[in-house]
């Protein structure tokens, strides 16, 4: 096995990070990694990956300036298939990992990806807190209403009555309403889309990434192996586009009404609030000095002396 050679250098006082590169026209293929996705054939997650790659190409973001952070689960394998920087982290912890990375280097475009179990089950608390912070990141949840990688147990969005491996007599818990939750938790961009509508999904994700502040996109992403209820045909017969309606995306109450529709399922941008400062813009350190990763590490001698004197 050939050893991979790497040119290295000793100590950087501060890592050399080139300024954010200019946007340039790109092809979606430029965001494809060498690794072939290991998802089941026709898994909804393919749609999300394709749409994300198209959105990044449309936006012309330099690959090196994107950080894709995922949790654990089928959908959380996504960063490996996406040619950017990535962190494939822990189950439920993608939000705080992303928060730490974004606060260390606010110049990055941070996209968080994962599933409904990861984001609405084990990671629910972190999800809510990142929303109320209005951190400038995009969170894409591939919502298939089932635990896929662990072979088919109930998830926080499984509907009442659905039989799964862990609910053989049907789920008896009320599902999480991710849209309503996001709307009341301070997210400044809340949208839903569907893997069966790649064009729509690409548009929504493009808007989400362009939005300044926390953007949340619930992506209906059918699990073809373990969810025999919420299938492509099931969604196809129920979704309708908000873009075709007279929906006011600035109206929080109208968005909440849409979040509680059950017979038909609206997709598109539910709510968008412009002009809210992001967490990074308000942070006392970043607002004054910029990216922490670009700060010199050494203490100035005068500061060191003043610190010591403060204890005398």
């Amino acid at each position: 096995m050939a050893k991979l050679a790497v040119k290295s250098t000793a100590t950087f006082p501060v890592p050399t990070i080139e300024p954010r590169a200019a946007k340039a026209a790109k092809k979606p293929d430029e965001f494809k990694s060498e690794i072939k996705p290991d998802w089941c054939p026709s898994c909804g997650d393919f749609g999300v990956l394709n749409a994300l790659q198209k959105a990044c190409a449309t936006l012309g973001i330099p690959n090196k300036d994107v950080l894709c952070v995922s949790g654990i689960g089928c959908s959380s394998n996504l960063p490996g298939f996406f040619k950017t920087y990535g962190i494939h982290s822990l189950h439920g912890r993608s939000n705080p990992i992303a928060a730490g990375a974004k606060l260390a280097n606010p110049e990055l475009t941070v996209v968080i990806t994962g599933g409904d179990g990861d984001g609405f089950g084990i990671g629910l608390g972190h999800f809510i807190h990142n929303m109320r912070r209005n951190l400038d990141v995009t969170y894409l949840v591939m919502d298939n209403q089932i635990y896929g990688l662990t072979t088919g147990q109930t998830s926080p969005t499984t509907t009442i009555g659905t039989q799964t491996k862990s609910t053989p007599e049907g789920c008896i818990e009320h599902p999480i309403n991710p849209m309503a939750l996001a709307l009341v938790s301070g997210a400044t961009f809340v949208a839903r889309t569907f893997s069966g509508e790649i064009g729509h999904m690409t548009e929504v994700i493009t808007k989400a990434i362009s939005h300044k502040g926390f953007s949340f996109v619930d992506c209906y992403s059918p699990c073809v192996t373990y969810n025999k209820v919420n299938t492509y045909p099931w969604f196809k017969s129920r979704v309708y586009k908000l873009e075709d309606q007279k929906h006011d995306t600035a109206d929080l109450r109208a968005a909440l009404d849409k979040a509680f529709e059950e017979e038909k399922l609206p997709i598109g941008v539910f709510y968008k609030k412009e002009g809210v400062p992001s967490y990074e813009e308000l942070d006392p350190t970043i607002s004054r000095l910029g990216a922490p990763v670009k700060q010199p590490l050494d203490l100035k001698p005068a500061d060191a002396k003043a610190l010591k004197d403060s204890f005398r």
């Binding site: 962190i87 982290s89 822990l90 990992i97 928060a99 730490g100 990375a101 974004k102 606060l103 260390a104």
Partner: peptide
């Protein structure tokens, strides 16, 4: 987890 994310970011 935030600290780990920040460490990865440099």
């Amino acid at each position: 987890n935030m600290a780990v994310g920040a460490g990865i970011a440099g």
